[in-house]
Measured scan of single mutants.
Amino acid sequence: TETYTFDSEDQAEEFAQRAQKKGYTVEKRKENGKFKVRVE
């Protein structure tokens, strides 16, 4: 499980979609103005 942090929602969304296409489970959340994407 890895967590990635992005400054913009667009970046987080793009990353999450790519990860989902590769078959990963993706969980997105906003925390302290940053966008976190957890991938497993």
Rank of each mutant, 00 (worst) to 15 (best):
G33Y: 03
F35H: 05
Q11S: 08
V39T: 04
E40R: 12
A19P: 00
F6C: 00
Y4E: 02
F6M: 01
E13G: 04
D10E: 14
A12G: 02
K28M: 15
E14I: 09
V39F: 04
V37P: 01
A12P: 00
R29A: 11
G33T: 04
D7N: 07
A12C: 05
Y24N: 04
R29C: 12
E2S: 14
T25G: 06
V26C: 06
T5E: 13
T25P: 05
K30R: 10
T5H: 06
F6E: 00
K21L: 13
R29L: 15
G23C: 03
E27T: 14
Q11T: 08
E31A: 05
T1I: 13
A12I: 01
E31G: 03
N32K: 07
E9W: 11
K22Q: 14
A16Y: 09
K21Q: 13
Q11P: 03
N32F: 07
F35S: 02
E31H: 06
A16F: 10
N32I: 02
R29G: 09
R38K: 13
A16C: 09
K30E: 14
N32E: 10
T25Y: 12
A12L: 02
T25D: 07
F15T: 02
Q20E: 12
G33K: 03
G23D: 02
Q17H: 09
Q20A: 13
A16T: 05
T1S: 13
F15E: 02
F6D: 00
R29E: 10
A19L: 14
R38S: 12
E13H: 06
Q11I: 08
R29I: 15
A19W: 14
T5K: 03
T25I: 13
Q17K: 12
E9S: 05
E9R: 05
Y24C: 09
K28I: 15
F15K: 01
E40I: 15
R18T: 11
R18I: 12
E9G: 04
K30C: 09
K34I: 10
K28H: 09
T25A: 10
F15M: 03
Q11V: 09
E14G: 05
Q11N: 05
G23N: 03
E31F: 05
Q17V: 11
D10F: 09
E2K: 15
N32H: 08
R38G: 04
E27A: 08
R38Y: 14
V37D: 01
E31T: 04
V26Y: 04
Y4T: 03
Q11D: 13
K30N: 11
N32S: 06
R38T: 14
Q20C: 07
A16V: 09
V39W: 03
N32G: 12
E31R: 03
D7K: 04
E2G: 14
Y24T: 03
K28G: 03
V37T: 00
E13N: 13
T3A: 05
E31W: 05
K21E: 14
V39G: 00
R18C: 14
Y4N: 02
R29V: 15
F6I: 01
Y24W: 09
V39S: 01
F35D: 01
Q11M: 11
V39A: 02
E31C: 07
S8Q: 08
D7C: 11
A19S: 06
T1F: 14
E31S: 05
V39Q: 02
E9V: 05
F35E: 00
R18E: 14
K28C: 12
T1N: 10
E9K: 05
Q20S: 09
V37E: 01
G23E: 02
E13L: 08
Y24S: 04
R29F: 15
K30G: 07
R18N: 12
F15Q: 01
T5V: 12
K22D: 13
Q20I: 14
A19N: 05
K22V: 07
R18G: 08
K30S: 10
E27Y: 13
T1C: 11
R29Y: 15
V39N: 00
E13P: 00
R29S: 14
E13Y: 06
E2D: 11
V39M: 04
R18D: 12
F6R: 00
N32L: 06
K36Y: 15
A12Q: 05
A16H: 03
T25F: 12
Q11W: 05
S8H: 09
E2H: 15
K22A: 14
K28S: 09
S8L: 08
V26T: 10
D7L: 07
F35T: 04
E14A: 12
D10R: 09
T5A: 06
V26W: 03
F6T: 00
G33H: 04
E40M: 14
E27Q: 10
G33P: 01
E9M: 07
Y24L: 09
S8E: 09
E31Y: 04
K28Q: 12
A19I: 09
T3E: 15
D7W: 06
E9L: 08
K34L: 10
R29M: 14
F6K: 00
K34E: 06
K21Y: 08
A19V: 10
K28T: 14
Q17N: 11
V39Y: 03
Q20Y: 09
R38D: 11
S8I: 05
K30Q: 13
S8T: 14
G33Q: 04
Y4V: 04
K30P: 07
F15W: 05
A12F: 02
T1R: 10
A19Q: 11
E2Q: 14
K21R: 10
T5P: 02
R38H: 10
V37C: 03
E14W: 09
D10S: 11
R38P: 01
E14T: 07
T3I: 13
F35W: 15
V37R: 00
Q20W: 08
S8V: 06
Q11G: 06
S8D: 13
V26H: 02
T5F: 11
